[in-house]
Every structure is written in structure tokens, then in C-alpha cells.
């Protein structure tokens, strides 16, 4: 019986860990840091070079912390010292869900996709992911 409870607890824990981004369906990319989690998925996929793409994003807060109402999305090429030529628009789509449009990797190479938001205390939080566009 004890083993069953443990299995149920582990299953529950795994379910919680997988929960962020479930609303977006399969095929999301995970990011995590300091208890915050992001799951994102691009459209189209694979992300083409020189064409616009959009992102569906799920942001999940650590237990007990409120979700922000807004999220900023950007991308830069660190080696080239420049960002995109476009400023993405991000629309909230429900609790922790966002849709970003207007992104474009206009060059092949290494890009850093950046997500930024403010927590309930006003501190800026940031998660990023390195991507290579080819």
C-alpha cells in the first residue's frame, strides 16, 4: 500500500512537472529557471531564416507566485551584436498563455531567444534559449 502511495505521488509530481505547456499540445520546447518554467512552440516549424514566425508560449510560475499579465519576447545575435529587425507583439491568451508574432531570424547563425517578465515583486525575470538558424 505504501508503495502504491509513493507511485501515486511520483506520478503526481511528474504530472506537475509536465503540466507547463500542456495547453499548447505536443512539440513544445521547455525552459526552466528559479522555479519558473516556459514552454514554447514556433510556427512554422522548423523556423525558417528570412521569414516571419510566431510563438505560442506558456509561462508557469513557482508555487505560490502570481503569473504576470505581460511577457516580452526578443531575439539577438550575440556574435553580431544586433537583434532582430522587427519588434514582436505579444498578446495574452489566458492564464500564463501568450502568442507572439512578428519575429524573424534574418540571418543564419546563432540566435538567443529571450523571454522577459516581471514577477509580483517587480523584479525582472528572464529565460533564454540559444538556437542556431541555418
Amino acid at each position: 500500500m505504501k508503495a502504491l502511495w509513493l507511485a501515486a505521488l511520483l506520478a503526481c509530481s511528474a504530472s506537475t512537472a509536465l503540466a507547463c505547456g500542456e495547453a499548447l499540445g505536443p512539440g513544445t520546447q521547455p525552459l526552466a529557471g528559479e522555479g519558473w518554467q516556459i514552454a514554447w512552440r514556433a510556427a512554422p516549424t522548423p523556423i525558417p531564416v528570412g521569414r516571419h514566425f510566431a510563438l505560442d508560449i506558456a509561462l508557469c510560475a513557482p508555487a505560490g507566485q502570481a503569473l504576470p499579465a505581460t511577457l516580452r519576447v526578443d531575439a539577438t545575435m550575440p556574435e553580431h551584436k544586433h537583434g532582430m529587425n522587427y519588434r514582436p507583439s505579444v498578446k495574452p491568451k489566458g492564464t500564463g498563455l501568450f502568442h507572439a508574432e512578428g519575429l524573424m531570424f534574418h540571418m543564419p547563425g546563432r540566435w538567443e531567444l529571450v523571454f522577459e517578465w516581471r514577477d509580483a515583486a517587480g523584479a525582472t525575470r528572464r529565460l533564454s534559449q540559444a538556437l542556431t538558424a541555418q
Partner: peptide
């Protein structure tokens, strides 16, 4: 032989 975007983990998702 990636033709689009690869993740930082090196996972390749080619056409």
C-alpha cells in the same frame, strides 16, 4: 545536415 533551427542541446530537426 540541419536545414533550419537546431537547439542548444544539439538536437537536429532537419527537413
Amino acid at each position: 545536415h540541419a536545414a533550419a533551427v537546431t537547439g542548444a542541446d544539439g538536437a537536429v530537426r532537419p527537413w
